[in-house]
Design a protein around this nucleic acid. Structure first.
Length: 485
RNA sequence: GGCCCGUUGGUCAAGUGGUUAAGACACCGCCCUUUCACGGCGGUAUCAGGGGUUCGAAUCCCCUACGGGUCACCA
């Protein structure tokens, strides 16, 4: 009976934002933790901007993150439908009740008139709010206005001089003065309810017990509360979690880099890493661990450890977490995620043959410690694919011009060519043998060979590189490089 | 501008009147490694400012500053 019911109610108006994902996650964690229900409702009353495509994008992102819903679009449930545009009939009933009880009234003001009023108030330094022109219209007036061709909106009559106080689960007691609100539109002239109204009806009708959402909705809450009260609905508990900010401490937007879940997915981030990271943004567990599986998050999550202050999205930390999960997942997974990026770089052609894939996985295994997200595999794997060696700097080339080097190169070429097959032990033997026989330090052997083969002073493990490149390509690269210096 | 929320190192943060103010990312150093990275060890660095209350304030109150949110026939 007093089961916890939470919801995530996105508007399908664009790419699914990482902040939305966090709101969804917190609700979901709460529901799973408390054995409650998590509802997915689509708020598509903005006809212009909403699209089915965005809705699909959101659902796909949620599934990818492993956030499943017990009731909502696609899965149904006892309080459906779960898309607002399919609930219009329901809303109409309640609008009629509000109108009849005098809690709402028709407003015939045009958008231009309202805009003019707003500007005038702003010019005088006043708070823009509805002046109440249509508050007390008689039937006579309404007939006249309608005859002018005006289509009315429905406005909620906000009680005057009333303190609206509620206890926010994350912020504590919050209070507003109703006089600061002003009568607001609840139904547009086209008959579609506005967010602040539909959300109340839906949350109440869907028996939502806890409304956990982003802080941007905090100032909307008093508007919603007066509607709950007018309709006699019990109030849910509210909890407003802080926003995610970009590096410059403003609300995260496109210019801060990737902001949609889909972008992170494409770059080769793992859902477990995103979930772990998002959970830690604005919530802190007891204890000192930082890495949590979904199950651990569920068992530890609690709203009273959610922070009030906004959090800056720190890509470095996300990268660290993702690198951790990537390494744990292993080369096969990393390879799979890297494939599109390797193809885009022109390194591979899809689909891969079994042999190509096996080879690629070995190459990935060599560089995986360097990779924070799979897209980076392309740059770290470049030395495996670029047979035209280019020196990264003059210093690198200069190392090869040292007087001691030609004999090293000659010995390397001969001994490698003489090898029946390349494997780690054999190649290691060749390199060590050269160091010993020519009586040179390792730095006169390993580094020059590396530079001769890759043009770079740093890179993947040399022995593995040579083995994976194979004798022919190694010898060919060597040939070209020696000619170039 | 009105209203609302917030402010502990560069970042995420623990902390709820008495602590040497945790931990993590990033950064720096050392070790491991004939490269780089991973890993290990160590280090730099924080209570926005000012007033109170108190024997004692990061913790409680007030003011200021700064940041954010919101004031739509968007959500």
């Amino acid at each position: 009976m007093n089961e916890l019911r939470v919801r995530f109610a996105p508007s399908p108006t664009g790419p699914f934002h990482i902040g939305g994902a966090r709101s969804a996650l917190f609700n979901w964690l709460l529901a799973r933790r408390e054995g409650g229900k998590f509802i997915l409702r689509i708020e598509d009353t903005d006809l212009e901007r909403s699209s089915r495509e965005s809705e699909e994008n959101i659902k796909e992102a949620l599934r990818w993150l492993g956030i499943d819903w017990d009731e909502g679009v696609d899965v149904g449930g006892p309080y459906g439908p779960y898309r607002q545009t399919e609930r219009l009939g329901l809303y109409r009933e309640y609008t009629a009740k509000l109108l009849a009880a005098g809690h709402a009234y028709h407003c015939y003001c045009s958008e231009d008139e309202l805009e003019a009023e707003r500007q005038a108030q702003l010019a005088k330094g006043e708070t823009p709010r509805y002046g109440g022109r249509c508050r007390c219209l008689g039937d006579e007036d309404r007939r006249r206005l309608a005859a002018e061709g005006r289509k009315p909106t429905v406005r909620f009559r906000v009680p005057e001089g009333k303190a609206i106080i509620f206890n926010d689960l994350v912020r504590g007691t919050v209070s507003f003065e109703s006089s600061g609100v002003g009568d607001f539109v609840i139904v547009k002239s086209d008959g579609i309810p506005v967010y602040n109204y539909a959300v109340v009806l839906d949350d109440a009708l869907m028996r939502v017990t806890h409304v956990i959402r982003a802080e941007e909705h905090l100032s909307n809450t008093p508007r919603q509360i007066v509607i709950y009260e007018a309709l006699g609905f019990p109030l849910p508990a509210f909890g407003h979690i802080s926003l995610i900010l970009g590096k410059d401490r403003t609300k995260m937007s496109k210019r801060h880099g990737a902001t949609s879940v889909e972008q992170y997915k494409c770059l080769g981030y793992l859902p477990a890493a995103i979930v772990n990271f998002l959970a830690l943004l604005g919530w802190a567990p007891e204890g000192e661990e930082e890495i949590f599986s979904r199950e651990e998050l569920i068992s530890r999550f609690s709203l009273d450890r959610v922070a009030k202050n906004p959090a800056v999205f720190d890509v470095d930390k996300l990268n660290w977490l993702n690198a951790h999960y990537l390494r744990a997942a292993g080369p096969a997974v990393i390879t799979e995620l890297a494939l599109p990026h390797l193809a885009a770089a022109g390194y591979v052609t899809l689909p891969l043959s079994g042999n190509e894939r096996a080879w690629l996985e070995q190459a990935v295994a060599v560089v995986q410690e360097h990779i924070s997200y799979a897209a980076q595999a392309a740059e770290h794997l470049a030395v495996f694919f670029k047979d035209d060696v280019a020196f990264e700097s003059d210093e690198a080339a200069a190392i090869l011009r040292d007087a001691d080097i030609p004999p090293v190169m000659a010995a390397f070429r001969e001994r490698l060519a003489a090898l029946p097959a390349l494997d780690d032990a054999a190649v290691k033997g060749v390199l060590k043998g050269i160091v010993k026989d020519l009586k040179l330090g390792g730095n006169k052997v390993y580094m020059p060979v590396r530079i001769a083969l890759t043009g770079q002073a740093h890179g993947p493990d040399l022995i593995r590189l040579i083995v994976l490149l194979g004798k022919d390509r190694v010898l060919a690269r060597l040939e070209k490089t020696l000619k170039a210096i």
